[in-house]
Computed example of a mutant assay.
Amino acid sequence: MKKNMGSADKIIRIIVAAIIVLFYFTGTISGTLGILLLVLAGIFVLTSFISFCPLYAPFGISTCSVKEKR
């Protein structure tokens, strides 16, 4: 599995996940929408830790900085 996420992308995903969790546990979002957003937050955290987003792969997107080989 080739890394395709840069550090800025990972930080943004973790911040968004933290905001979703905060909103869920303060009662701002609830019900089915809350559960779906919690699942999305979990996916964001997981993909941030492994530095790979499966949705980027089919489209050839990579936010990871690539160092040139000489």
Score class of each variant (00 low, 15 high):
Val21Leu: 12
Ala41Met: 06
Thr28Tyr: 12
Met5Cys: 04
Ser7Met: 15
Ile11Thr: 13
Thr28Arg: 09
Ser30Ala: 11
Ile43Asn: 06
Thr28Trp: 07
Thr26Cys: 07
Ser62Arg: 05
Val16Arg: 01
Gly6Val: 09
Lys2Glu: 12
Leu33Phe: 11
Ile19Asn: 00
Gly31Val: 11
Ile14Ser: 04
Thr47Asp: 01
Phe44Ala: 12
Ala8Thr: 14
Pro58Phe: 00
Val66Ser: 05
Ala18Trp: 08
Leu37Tyr: 06
Ile29Leu: 03
Ile43Glu: 07
Thr26Met: 12
Val39Met: 11
Tyr56Thr: 00
Ser7Cys: 10
Phe59Gln: 05
Ile29Pro: 01
Leu37Ile: 06
Tyr24Asp: 06
Glu68Ser: 12
Val39Ala: 14
Ala8Asn: 13
Val45Tyr: 00
Ile14Met: 08
Gly34Thr: 10
Val45Gln: 01
Phe44Leu: 15
Gly42Thr: 12
Ile29Glu: 03
Gly34Lys: 08
Lys2Tyr: 03
Leu37Ser: 08
Ile15Glu: 05
Leu55Arg: 11
Ser30Gly: 11
Phe52Val: 14
Lys2Asp: 10
Ser65Trp: 13
Asn4Tyr: 05
Val16Gly: 03
Val39Pro: 04
Phe44Asn: 09
Phe44Tyr: 15
Ile11Cys: 06
Lys10Cys: 15
Lys67Pro: 01
Leu40Asn: 05
Gly60Cys: 01
Ile15Pro: 02
Val16Thr: 12
Phe59Asp: 00
Gly27Glu: 09
Glu68Met: 05
Ser51Gly: 04
Thr47Asn: 08
Ala41Tyr: 06
Ile50Pro: 09
Thr32Glu: 09
Arg13Val: 02
Leu37Ala: 10
Ala17Gln: 02
Leu38Arg: 07
Ala41Lys: 07
Tyr24Lys: 15
Glu68Val: 10
Cys53Arg: 04
Thr63Pro: 06
Leu38Ile: 13
Ile14His: 01
Lys10Ser: 10
Thr32Tyr: 03
Ser48Leu: 08
Pro54Asn: 01
Gly42Gln: 09
Ile35Glu: 08
Gly60Asn: 04
Phe23Val: 00
Tyr24Ala: 14
Arg70Phe: 08
Arg70Asp: 15
Pro58Glu: 02
Ala18Phe: 14
Val66Cys: 00
Ala18Met: 12
Ile50Thr: 15
Met5Ile: 07
Gly42Asn: 09
Ala17Trp: 02
Phe23Asp: 08
Val45Phe: 08
Gly6Ala: 08
Leu33Ser: 13
Gly27Trp: 08
Gly60Pro: 02
Pro54Trp: 05
Val45Ile: 15
Ser51Tyr: 07
Lys2Cys: 03
Phe23Gln: 11
Asp9Leu: 07
Val39Asp: 04
Leu38Ala: 09
Cys64Leu: 14
Leu36His: 03
Val66Pro: 00
Asp9Ile: 00
Ile14Pro: 02
Ala57Gly: 01
Gly27Arg: 10
Ala8Val: 14
Lys67Gln: 12
Pro58Thr: 01
Ile35Gly: 02
Val45Lys: 00
Ile12Val: 14
Ile20Pro: 04
Ile19His: 00
Phe52Thr: 10
Leu38Tyr: 10
